[in-house]
Design a protein around this nucleic acid. Structure first.
Length: 271
DNA sequence: TCCTATGTTGTATG
DNA sequence: ACATACAACATAGG
C-alpha cells in the first residue's frame, strides 16, 4: 500500500503514544521484518523508554525513544514494504499472526502488522541519529531537490524508461507505483520514454508535477486517508475498462520497469 | 490452478 | 565501476 502520503498517514496513527512510556515490547523475533537486527537487544532498549517523537522521510519512518535520565536514545526505523500498517489497539491486546511488533503502553498498544513481510525494522542506540536515517536523500518538497538535480539524475539513467527511474528511492524518496504513473500522466510523458531524452521544457514540467503530486497526496491522503478526486488518474487506473479523466480514452496497461504501469495513450506519446 | 498486488534487494549481464 | 533487467522474497484474494 504505502507510498509517501500513506506512510505519513500511518506514522501519525502512533501519535497517541508520543510522550508515553513503553511498558513492554512484543515481537515475532524470527519474522523477516527483523532481518539483520538483534531482537533481544532491540526489545531491551525500547522497554521502559518513552516515545518522544516521529518523522517520515519518503517511505522510511523514524521513532525516537529515550529512557528517563539516559544519555543515549533508541532509534527505531520502520519501512512498511508492500503491506505494512501501523495501528493502535487497547493495552491488553493479543498480537495476531501478522502483528510482528507491538509497543505496549499503559493506555494503548502500538501495532506494526505486515502480512507479506516485505517491510523492515531498523534499530540503533546512540546520542545522535544513525547513518541509515541521516543519510537519506533530500525530500522532494525540500529546496535541495532542484531541476538541476533531476536533470543530472536522468542523464545518468539515460536509457532506462522514465517510469523505472522515478521509482528509484535514492533520488525520488516516497514515489511508488501509483505516484509515478500519476506524475507521468499529469506531465504527459510516456512511461517508456528514455529518461535521458527529455528536453529542458519537458524536464521542467516533470519537475513541477513531481512536486505537485507529492504535495497534493500529502494534503489529501496523508491527512486523513481521503480519496483523491476523480480528476486524478488514481481513481481510474485499477478499474476494468478505466478511462482517462482528461481525454476519455481507454487507459492502457503494461509492465514497465517490472511494475504494472497505466497510461493514457493519446495524451502520453513516445517522442 | 493461476494471476495479481501502492516494494526492495541480490545477482547476472552488458 | 556503472547501468540495466529481473527473479526472489511471503501472503492473500480474485
Amino acid at each position: 500500500m504505502p507510498e509517501l502520503a500513506e506512510v505519513d498517514y500511518f506514522r501519525k496513527q502512533w501519535n497517541p503514544g508520543l510522550g508515553q512510556r513503553i511498558e513492554k515490547v512484543l515481537v515475532h523475533p524470527k519474522a523477516r521484518i527483523f532481518r539483520g537486527i538483534d531482537t533481544k537487544r532491540f526489545v531491551r532498549a525500547l522497554s521502559g523508554a518513552t516515545l518522544e517523537r516521529s518523522e517520515a522521510r519518503g517511505k522510511q519512518m523514524l521513532f525516537v525513544a529515550k529512557e528517563h535520565g539516559a544519555k543515549t536514545k533508541a532509534w527505531l526505523g520502520l519501512h512498511l514494504g508492500m503491506t505494512g500498517k501501523l495501528r493502535v489497539e487497547p493495552p491488553g491486546f493479543e498480537p495476531a499472526r501478522h502483528d510482528h511488533l507491538v509497543l505496549v503502553q499503559s493506555k494503548r498498544a502500538l501495532v506494526f502488522d505486515d502480512p507479506r513481510l516485505f517491510g523492515r525494522v531498523l534499530f540503533a542506540e546512540g546520542a545522535t541519529a544513525p547513518a541509515w536515517w541521516s543519510k537519506l536523500p533530500p525530500d522532494l518538497l525540500s529546496p535541495a531537490f532542484t531541476v538541476q538535480a533531476l536533470a543530472d539524475f536522468l542523464r545518468r539513467r539515460a536509457r532506462a524508461p522514465i517510469k523505472a527511474v522515478l521509482l528509484m528511492q535514492e533520488r525520488f524518496p516516497g514515489i511508488g507505483n501509483w505516484m509515478a504513473d500519476e506524475i507521468l500522466w499529469r506531465a504527459a510523458i510516456h512511461p517508456k520514454q528514455p529518461a535521458g531524452s527529455l528536453d529542458t521544457a519537458r524536464l521542467r514540467v516533470l519537475y513541477r508535477e513531481i512536486r505537485a503530486v507529492c504535495r497534493n497526496a500529502l494534503r489529501i491522503i496523508g491527512r486523513d486517508w481521503s480519496d483523491p478526486p476523480d480528476s486524478w488518474l488514481f481513481n481510474h487506473r485499477w478499474q476494468k475498462g478505466g478511462t482517462c479523466p482528461r481525454t476519455g480514452a481507454k487507459l492502457q496497461h503494461a509492465t514497465i520497469g517490472g511494475r504494472t504501469t497505466c497510461w493514457s495513450p493519446g495524451r502520453q506519446k513516445l517522442k
